[in-house]
């Protein structure tokens, strides 16, 4: 099958970009999940092995990575609800654009609650 000419398949705007973001975040989360099961499995090796590896999650660079991971999860979760509303709610397709802006608003609120808490823990001010 020949490829579609440029500019016809991807429609742009909220519908396409939310789909792109959903893919990218889902892909990233999946690869973290593989690593996360492996690191947690070290509890079966020894307490020392687990604590050594989990200790690397507590340094500032990893702490920023965790903030990015949580951001990806929060977006994927909220946009997933939007996808279900588009699929199952009779008015969903009509409001899909508005719902993306609602998703972004909820994302900002959630991250505004999470980030200070997490970054204070990571950078030592949250004890």
């Amino acid at each position: 099958m020949s490829k579609a000419p440029a500019g016809t398949l991807y429609r742009g705007r909220e519908g396409m970009w939310s789909w792109v973001a959903h893919r990218v975040t889902g892909f990233l989360i999946f690869f973290f999940l593989l690593v996360h099961v492996l690191d947690t499995s070290l509890v079966r090796v020894s307490p020392e092995a687990y604590n050594a590896v989990i200790g690397t999650y507590k340094n500032p660079i990893m702490g920023i990575g965790e903030a990015g991971l949580v951001a990806a999860i929060v977006f994927h979760a909220f946009n997933g609800v939007r996808v279900m509303l588009v699929d199952f709610w009779s008015q969903g397709p009509r409001y899909q654009r508005v719902m993306l802006w609602v998703v972004i608003g909820l994302f900002v609120v959630t991250m505004a609650g999470f980030l200070p808490r997490h970054l204070m823990n990571v950078f030592g001010g949250g004890h």
Binding site: V43, P47, Y50, V122
Partner: peptide, 23 residues
Amino acid sequence: IFGHLFMNLIDGEGINAIDFGFV
């Protein structure tokens, strides 16, 4: 996952509390 993130990253001392004893 939101429950998991709350228990492990937000509650108590967040990620600093995670070690073998926590698990």
